[in-house]
Amino acid sequence: MNVFRIGCRFLSSTRPVWNAEIPGFNGAVGGMSYLKRFGSKKEIPPNSPKTIVKRIRRKESRLKKQIVRDVNNLKQHEVKNVQLSVDPVLGDPKCAFIQRIFDEVADHENHLAYGVDKVEFEKLMYGVEKANLEKLAGTNVISSEQARAMEEKKKRALLTILNLRNSNSFDKRKLAIRLAREEFQRFDGDTGSPEVQAAVLTVKIHFAMKHVKENRKDFEYIQQTREMVQYRQRLLKYLKKDNPERYFYTIHKLGLADDVVHCEFNMGRQYFQDYKVWGDRQLVKLSEKQQKKIQKVHDLKRRVEEYQTIAKKNYELAKQATTKGSN
């Protein structure tokens, strides 16, 4: 798809496609004329009679018209069917913020389960060790080294219990939400500003989509997710009106885009099919007429691509011929 898009821009640009000056081409040659000239060019065998030459020329002109028509039709189609720039639910898959949040949630080293803070835990364990050592100091029952080893053992046992692997996804989601909130908050303890709400919803949506991917029959949950997506849209629309600077920062950080916020979007079957949430499963049945229409566009794209390859080939040949001629 991407390859095609580049091709299309190349076809539709009005600027010269290459800068090299080729004698006989009047310097700047537009992309269109490039196609016309080379896509439709046929080779005429030498010493062929006039009638044959005429026939070939006629064929050439017909093909030229066809090419122009096809390219223009495709251009119109592209203008009418503008695709969303990013996934309207999950946003940009390369979004650094989301990746970081998920990395943190998977980080067993620095985070503990059940909402226990790692640093606070370390401090407490040190305090407990000190207290116990002091208690044992007068008694002379065991040496301080033995006592320390015992404390270490206790600490390790606690760490095993508090390992993130023992927590459920709800706890992980809670941690992710806390991290997201802390990054977006305007002041300490801010939970209500629209950007914080949008960030929290984004985290929730990511967790929800993970669940939806695995449980495609959980219709209730899908509906809840759908509502979250639309609520986030509404919040962001408000934020744009209220504080555009923060709005653009927020959407960029969350991996969303302006068109995604403002488009009419419903997370329905079409979305699940287009973004392959459950693999290559066909969810929307098309009528014969619709199928034909899609096939038509598909054929058109293929044709234009073909013209392009022919044009490129012919252009190379022409270039070689001119360089040979000049030498």
Binding site: A96, F97, R100, P244, E245, Y247, F248, Y249, I251, H252, K253, D258
Partner: peptide, 21 residues
């Protein structure tokens, strides 16, 4: 024009944040 400016600023700010991190 303002929105376009804010968009550029946001991009810069986010990439700056990543670099700082």
């Amino acid at each position: 024009q303002q929105f376009a400016l804010y968009q550029d600023m946001a991009k810069e700010r986010v990439s700056q944040e990543i670099a700082d991190r």
